[in-house]
Amino acid sequence: MDLHDIALTVGNSGLGEWMRTNVRAMPIVEALHVIAAATVFGTVLVVDLRLLGLPDLKRTVTRVSGEMLHFTWAAFGLAVITGVMMFAANANTYYGNTAFRIKLLALAAAGANMALFHFGAFRTVAQWDSKQVSPRAAKVAAALSILLWVGVIFVARWIGFTKGYDFAVPDNIDLDLTIP
């Protein structure tokens, strides 16, 4: 079973069918996805700005990050659930969509950057927790994090303008409805 088979299984599942047959499902799920993505980006931004030494300098890095991370993870969970629901509605077209693939890569890069920071620079946080200036490695991770998450949002929005196909499709034709 390769990735394409998994995509087709998700698309043909009851969830996919439910997403396609309920007219209000897509707008509601998309709106929740925007709210989740906005919360992930905003909360990550608060931590990244602290690491870059912009605001919140009177509070320790761990205080700021500890407070924000609950919200980041909860919102990320909601984004994954709503993302899978949107994917299930049109799994086959998303599977072959370049913008969608780039988005997943950007997401993976943002996750890898976060992991590298967590298991790298963050291990010595006790030494610089209350300092206004973070080590260079932490600043680089924070700057990369902002760029990658903004990138994720940009490519994600781009998916909606590709109509799922990599060739030009006239605006008045919705190929999604003609291919099962």
Binding site: V34, G42, F154
Partner: peptide
């Protein structure tokens, strides 16, 4: 239009989390 919508969403993240906090 995609660029403006993307900037719009990034800014929604800023305003929403600021209001939330």
């Amino acid at each position: 239009i995609p660029l403006l919508q993307s900037i719009h969403i990034v800014m929604i993240g800023v305003v929403f989390v600021a209001v939330l906090l």
